[in-house]
Amino acid sequence: MIAALIVRDLRRQWRGGGVWMPVAFFLLVATLFPFAIGPDGETLARVGPGAAWVAALLAALLPIDRLIAPDVDNGVLDQLAVRGASDELIAAAKIAAHWLGFGPPLMLAAIPAAALLRLDGAALWRLEAALLIGTPGLAALAVATAALIAGLRGAGALAGLLMLPIAVPLLIFASGDGPGALKLLAATSLALVAGAPFVAGAAIRAGRAS
């Protein structure tokens, strides 16, 4: 069941153009930064990884109102529950599908973005590693937020307010360049991936009972 759910979500993202949206958004932000900061290579290289991560965070936030709410509205989550799927399992499948839809494409987009931000080879590798480790945490956070705001009015603005503060540790460790930064990033990301299905599952259940 979980594989069928992931495949379906990926297909829906693909049909909705959802896979290219985060990538285009990420590259657009990377393009805008040199305009805003100026073409000085050294400055760009210093703020580059941080800028790339802010872009990644916003790219993860972009499809948030399409992650859970449509499935609540058209009864898909109810149908899954009738078939005995736990809400936590559904949330875990959603996290996997969301990550597959934006994590790997973002890692590809990071290569041209690195050129725009004047990152050298070593910095690019570090950015790729941080994206690989950190984006699952972002996906988990996005799905948990999406489940919490499903069914609320004005949910889009609320999503940012809810999710961005919790993403701060990811941002700090992802763009820090100390020796332990990647390990701390991995720990944060792991905690988010482990906890988010339960938060999202409880939110889905609460929405159903109300």
């Binding site: 379906r8 829906r12 049909r15 909705g16 509205d73 058209n74 009864g75 898909v76 109810d78 149908q79 529950a81 009738v82 078939r83 159903r208 009972a209």
Partner: peptide, 29 residues
């Protein structure tokens, strides 16, 4: 269907359930 919990009393169900709710649960695209 087991989607709502009754305040009191119990539901006994043997066999799989198929629910036709208000929404069709079919993907539009």
């Amino acid at each position: 269907a087991g989607l709502l919990r009754p305040v009191s009393g119990g539901v006994q169900r043997e066999g799989a359930v198929a629910l036709l709710a208000e929404q069709a649960a079919l993907d539009g695209d």
